[in-house]
Design a protein around this nucleic acid. Structure first.
Lengths: 158, 158
DNA sequence: CGCTTGCCTGGAGTGCACTCCAAGGTCATA
DNA sequence: TATGACCTTGGAGTGCACTCCAGGCAAGCG
């Protein structure tokens, strides 16, 4: 029913990203080189989308096997986790690309990145508030339809 | 920054919809016939979009002036308020059209409508949870960028 | 060796939700 | 009464985020 995201993300292993201690990544496997289809399975994104993310610069160049096939690292998976989170805040892909560029530019962009994240945080809070507002409306309407199988005062706003 | 909705909704007068008592609508004006541009101003939707909503069946035929111009009623505005709420849950327009059709079919569809609203409610709860999860990630990253203008442990996931 | 499966590329196509256009009719104000 | 802002229509165009396609390479298996 939902448009944006969250459609099919089967087992998006939610690992903590960028937290305190070095934390090794408890990925499904113990190694560090995943094929595109494995990554597709982990993240719920299609292989098409993964290649597309790379093309548009949302992911920096992925390591390759000796025959040119992509080999994703745990680092790449972490990044995809973050992208997934940002995606479901409604952030446009172009903005995520901008963030990726800042990352590639190095430490000098720390404050820019922070700002971007804080703006996103504000958006998320606003969206949560909106959704809670919507929830209230839904509850009111549901209880209207629930209270009486048939009208109690005719059709108000439908 | 946001894609979905919430871009420009200047003064979307939030009135309670379909609640208990008949409640008159404290609309900006005291009457019941608004031009399309007035409605655009109230709802933040463009006139184009309002006409389009009508074309696709998201709104039942709007009353017309003697010369054929649209005259929206308070009932129509209430409906648009609901549509706005549903829209920012991420519900596809097609589903809203489906709901509108159920409404047009009359009282016999009460339970279908209720089901649809309850499914939407579940979606909204899930989305709120996702967003709170995302918020946690953002906070962790923000505090990483905040704690030190420069790296404390190098770039983890970026 | 042939077959199947998986991956590669650039570019074209899709679906959604608008958004705009052209050509014309209407309305309020100076 | 004329000017300009506003409204009408069907249909075409836009932007985003994928999604798919054709044509081809590479590895594993009976």
């Amino acid at each position: 029913m939902q448009t944006t995201a969250a459609t099919t993300r089967p087992n998006a292993t939610r690992t903590d990203i960028c937290s305190g201690p070095p934390r090794r990544h408890p990925r499904p496997d113990g190694q560090d080189r995943y094929t595109i289809s494995e990554v597709a399975a982990f993240t719920g994104l299609s292989a098409h989308t993964l290649r597309w993310y790379e093309r548009i610069g949302l992911m920096s160049h992925i390591d390759r096997s000796h025959t040119g096939q992509r080999r994703y690292s745990n680092r790449d998976l972490d990044w995809l986790d973050l992208v997934g989170k940002l995606r479901l805040t409604g952030m446009p892909v172009a903005d995520m690309v901008r963030y990726a560029e800042l990352v590639r530019e190095g430490e000098s962009t720390y404050s820019d990145r922070r700002e971007l994240l804080e703006a996103t945080r504000r958006d998320v809070l606003a969206r949560i508030a909106e959704l809670q507002d919507t929830l209230a409306v839904l509850d009111r309407k549901i209880s209207f339809y629930g209270d009486a199988g048939r009208a109690r005062e005719g059709e108000r706003t439908r």
